[in-house]
Amino acid sequence: MFRELTIGQYYPGDSIIHRLDPRVKLMGALLFIVSVFLASNIFSILVVTAFLIAIIVLCKVPLSFMLKGLRSIVLLLVIAGIFNLFLTPGTVLFQLGFLHITDVGIKNCIFMIIRMTYLIVGTSVMTLTTTPNALTAGLEKSLGFLKKIRIPVHEIAMMMSIALRFIPILVEETDKIMKAQMARGADFESGGVFKRAKSMVPILVPLFVSAFRRANDLALAMEARCYNGGDGRTKMKPLKYNQSDKNAYALEIGFVALTIIANILYNRYVSGLFANMLGV
């Protein structure tokens, strides 16, 4: 049941996007978020949409798999959408008791849903195409300058990648222990809150025991290989930019610039046009 989780999951593949340096993808995700928030009209939204579609096509992850991650936030989208729709002041178009729908409300609602959807899909392209290890390596290198102000970047990154590595192991372990206790007649589904909480004890105790055992073993194994933190440590596969990474950076910056240009063009010509047509 835990295996259905897709947000933050890696989808193995060998597309152009998969092969990019993780730092390019991190920066890309950041610039994409900026653009989504900058985009405030139909022109710039179209630019963002085109960019998103291009990435989705390039990364070769099945669309259905990507949209699975959206399922978990549908409720959030609906609630936020309703609030925007009914509670925004502006020119009233429909009135329904104390609820009213305004022109600005409709616009906000549509933009909000588009933005949230794009944010989730856009950032999940990054996690779907980058292994957690590559991602932390990218973060470690990008944030390396923080070492100057005594922030232990390497240690934090190491903790992150170990934690990420342990999630699937612990999920599998939970699955096994649950099955073993079910085979001994344990029942996790019936009864009140208290009984159910109590029924978790036979799972949690062995799970903690095994987590500590694994942590201990890993620490020993790391020590046995002379691990002593980040100082002077070199990488087996150091991150290096190649030509396609540089091109990708150029494309990302071009994309943000295009979004801004679309905004300016819209404000200068189109919104004025509408105002003229309405005779304002």
């Binding site: 073993a180 206790q181 001994r184 007649g185 344990a186 036979p202 105790v205 062995p206």
Partner: peptide, 23 residues
């Protein structure tokens, strides 16, 4: 199961063996 000792959880062996029949 494989490595069945990973499912032990009660404070004593006796209580742990009780788990199945109690259920």
């Amino acid at each position: 199961f494989q490595y069945p000792e990973h499912q032990l959880f009660e404070p004593t062996v006796f209580e742990d063996v009780c788990f199945g029949p109690k259920n």
